[in-house]
């Protein structure tokens, strides 16, 4: 099965690497200064979003697709709220700038 097999998780890892490099380029284009803890927060944000998505699939595999969708939507709302905070944090200029 694709969805619970190694290829799926290989692709997810691949996507994570691509997203990481894309995010780095995106931040540089915007003039954001990324340090280690900002990068970690961004990775955590992505992790929360993806976990919600993975949980949807896992619960669907348990014959609980409805609960999975609700869990994903809940995670999406949480991700959007946290994403707004993260954006403002990343976009903030140093006070002496």
């Amino acid at each position: 099965m694709f969805w619970d097999g190694n290829i799926f998780w290989f692709l997810m890892g691949l996507i994570f690497v691509v997203v990481s490099f894309a995010f780095k380029a995106f931040a540089e284009d915007r003039g954001w200064t990324l340090n280690w803890w900002k990068s970690l927060l961004a990775a955590l944000w992505y992790w929360i979003l993806m976990l919600s998505f993975y949980a949807w699939g896992t619960l669907a595999g348990e014959n609980e697709a409805s609960a999975g969708l609700k869990f994903f939507l809940f995670g999406l709302v949480v991700s959007i709220i946290l994403g707004v905070g993260l954006w403002r944090l990343l976009a903030a200029k140093p006070k002496d700038a």
């Binding site: 609980e64 409805s66 609960a67 609700k70 869990f71 809940f74």
Partner: peptide, 8 residues
């Protein structure tokens, strides 16, 4: 809360 609100 999630159990009672997400699961039917």
């Amino acid at each position: 809360w999630m159990q009672k609100n997400f699961f039917d």
